[in-house]
């Protein structure tokens, strides 16, 4: 393939990754923003979403579409329930102490991951996409008869990949509206700004925390259901989205939702594009190093505002 079509293909692959990453990172950012909890187990809620999706799809059997839609509804709910239980049983009892909650969520990470290993097994398992039409993409080139449209071999995407991008965009827009328009969105923002004042105004902060933790996990699980027809479910699949989400949240500014989405698009796209042309390991090293240095020298992130 020529360079141009290759780049278009990489961009499309990157966009799928970015869409899913934006949802996952949004969950992590939401939890950190409102609760000041760094959820190291976030990637495991993603994994849980994928695993539940496989269970739902394989239980419902025949029609992939039915199984997929059911998974899209059930998996986020499952993740939310597990997350809320973890919040009630563990995080709340630690009074959301930042360092203690990190250690605890590392523990939760291993508990979830290893439970998945016991219940789901070490294999990677596929989930069938509900629809998967191959769409060939055209490319323009200056040929013998002037500008010509043609379809290079291998330059194609699928209807499902386009659906993933659209679905993620819809959720992001819906979430932004939910945050700015709904009553619960207002309560969340109030709790994020000032916990004590929120308490004084009668906001049940602990319940808000539980719901936020559940919501963060549900976003990760939803993202995983979207990706699982492309990537397969595996008990160790949580590590990469966790690392990438961290990168996104830190670059975007800890707790800044708009920054998170912008950074997710940036990181997701460049990860997709860089991985096509360079070694993915080198890309990861550079990204991780960059993020560490951002934290050291500009802790409010590239997008966030400086605190007074």
């Amino acid at each position: 393939m020529e360079f141009g079509p290759h780049l278009l293909l990489a961009t499309l692959e990157g966009a799928v990754g970015a869409a899913v990453l934006a949802l996952t990172a949004l969950g992590l950012s939401l939890v950190f923003g409102v609760m000041r909890v760094v959820n190291v187990a976030h990637g495991e809620f993603y994994m849980l979403g994928a695993v539940v999706a496989w269970f739902v799809a394989s239980t419902l059997g025949s029609a992939p579409a039915t199984g997929f839609v059911a998974a899209l509804l059930i998996a986020p709910v499952c993740a939310a329930v597990v997350a809320m239980a973890a919040d009630r049983l563990v995080l709340k009892r630690l009074h959301y102490d930042p360092e203690a909650t990190i250690v605890a969520t590392i523990g939760i990470l291993y508990i979830m991951q290893q439970t998945a290993l016991m219940g789901f097994g070490p294999e990677a398992r596929p989930v069938a996409p509900p629809f998967n039409t191959r769409i060939a993409l055209p490319w323009v080139e200056w040929g013998e008869n002037g500008l010509a449209l043609f379809y290079p071999w291998g330059l194609s995407t699928t209807s499902y990949k386009l659906f993933v991008i659209a679905a993620a965009a819809a959720i992001l827009i819906g979430f932004a509206l939910f945050l700015s328009r709904s009553r619960f969105g207002l309560i969340m923002r109030a709790t994020q700004l000032d916990r004590e004042t929120a308490l004084a105004f009668g906001i049940p902060v602990e319940r808000v925390y539980s719901l936020v933790f559940g919501l963060g996990a549900a976003l990760a699980a939803f993202a995983a259901v979207l990706i699982v027809p492309i990537q397969q479910a595996h008990y160790l699949m949580g590590a990469d989205p966790l690392l990438l989400s961290f990168i996104v949240v830190i670059i975007g500014g800890l707790g800044s939702l708009r920054g998170t989405v912008v950074a997710a698009l940036l990181i997701g796209m460049s990860d997709g594009i860089i991985s096509v042309f360079f070694s993915p390991t080198l890309a990861k090293i550079l990204a991780t190093l960059l993020v560490a240095l951002v934290l050291v020298f500009r802790p409010q992130g590239l997008y966030g505002k400086k605190r007074a």
Binding site: E99, K284, I285, A292, L295
Partner: peptide, 26 residues
């Protein structure tokens, strides 16, 4: 890393270690 404290210190050390790990693979 000592320019940071608390949670940021934890994450920065995690990230540096990840760089070392990935470099060994690379």
């Amino acid at each position: 890393a000592l320019r940071t404290i608390g949670v940021a210190f934890m994450i920065v050390t995690l990230m540096f270690a990840q760089c070392v790990f990935l470099s060994i693979l690379y």
